[in-house]
Design a protein around this nucleic acid. Structure first.
Lengths: 234, 234
DNA sequence: CCTCGACTTATGTCTAGACATAATGATGCC
DNA sequence: GGCATCATTATGTCTAGACATAAGTCGAGG
């Protein structure tokens, strides 16, 4: 192989774990053994093993050695959370959006995490792909975290991209669920009331301070989220 | 700080990126500069920077240096894909399941990725939490990939955990969508037909060979998936 | 002005040492 | 047997060098 040594060690071990030759719990060679086997320095073996540990394939403990990790029961998958405009344009459709409502008001109790007792700006938007409704969005932005939002023209630029440019978030929580469309959403999405929709709730923070809270609702037959997970391959 | 040097360098830089002091595109100090600043060896500085690069905070190129990475528009989030039994028991409910149907048959055309022209075993199950329906599952297992499945007693052990123990997967694709309950599912889940449900489609492979294809359907008001993403904090 | 080298520089990889730290296993005492 | 103690060992971190490699920079020649 023309691979660099630590990558070769990594992929050799990875292959053995993948093939089932080394099952979860199996103890792998110590760094000193790898060092002898590959004729390299301990640091090089260490780098390979650290890489495997960082990817979750193995578990390392001082003195106890390195063992093949037990696969997590709750497997975690990487899901791509889309920016609606990018998503629509990526599918080759023309993107448009319409601001349905905009209101500045004091924060309510359930929004305490967002803005405390401060003021918020509340928006309602529909996103269109080739003129057809693609998603409905209700969003609240904290004016404490983003005071410039009060003067922003959200009819010209959707709040999502405006926020990305003005107050990048440092932490986010997404909640994915299914809901039946309520009467208002159904009208804007041109669906029968009660139709199954995918709802993406997103809360974001910037250094601990709440920035925005958004509910995006997609017609169930128009959209799905794909998550891929390769627990072993790089 | 009592932190180890390379972690301190990492978190110092991380803080500056987080705070917005160093915006995307900003060029960070070279390893030699960090080495002088922290009085450490170049390898130590390198380790810190590699760690940041592995987490996607910075981009490194030979000779060009290290710059703050541009945040991805399609942000990826880690979503926990649950094992139903674990999920139910984790909520403090009693888990039960009922096998509704079991059939061995040749693979259909849409299942070519799974079993080619081989045989498959098809299962239909309901999962219960404290006696109440929690999820409906339709699953197909390739008998090429898991021949022992033909003899397994899926009434005693749900297929999900049986597979986890017998043929661990190496690759998986999850698709999350919203669907209205069809008549059969609605009856088993005790829902009105058409009620919004969260559907989790999961396909798994073992070293390129298809293993199983499952559709799990959850009542929309009973379940949601939570994804957290902290692009910057460790 | 443009292009092709040669030079420089920042990262990538590697080595052969060193000391630190945590967990295991053995030992000896009660 | 049960328990405290100590030696051993595998990993964790670090250093001060080395050579390799990719990619900007700059100059010479057309």
């Amino acid at each position: 192989m023309d691979m660099v040594i630590h990558r070769r060690i990594e992929s050799d071990i990875e292959r053995r774990i993948l093939s089932g030759e080394w099952r979860p719990g199996h103890r792998l060679p110590t760094e000193s053994e790898l060092m002898a086997e590959y004729g390299c320095a301990r640091m090089t073996a260490s780098k390979a093993m650290s890489g495997l540990a960082a990817r979750g394939l193995v578990t390392r403990r001082r003195r106890a050695g390195t063992i093949v990790a037990h696969p997590p029961l709750h497997s975690a998958a990487l899901v791509a959370i889309p920016d609606i405009q990018t998503e629509v344009e990526g599918r080759g459709h023309a993107y448009e959006h319409r601001l349905l409502a905009r209101r500045v008001r004091p924060a309510e109790d359930v929004e305490a995490w967002l803005a405390g007792a401060g003021r918020v700006i509340q928006l309602e938007t529909v996103h269109l792909a080739d003129g057809a409704p693609f998603a409905h969005e209700r969003r609240v932005i904290s004016l404490d975290a983003a005071p410039e939002a009060e003067a922003a023209d959200f009819a010209a630029q959707p709040a999502g991209s405006w926020l990305l440019a003005h107050t990048p978030w440092t932490e986010a929580e997404h909640r994915i669920s299914a809901v039946g469309a309520d009467v208002v959403m159904a009208r804007h999405l041109l669906l029968p009331p009660g139709a199954a929709c995918l709802r993406l709730e997103r809360r974001t923070w910037r250094d601990g301070q709440g920035v925005t809270w958004a509910f995006q609702t997609f017609p169930g037959d128009a959209y799905d989220l794909v998550a891929r997970f390769q627990p072993t391959k790089a």
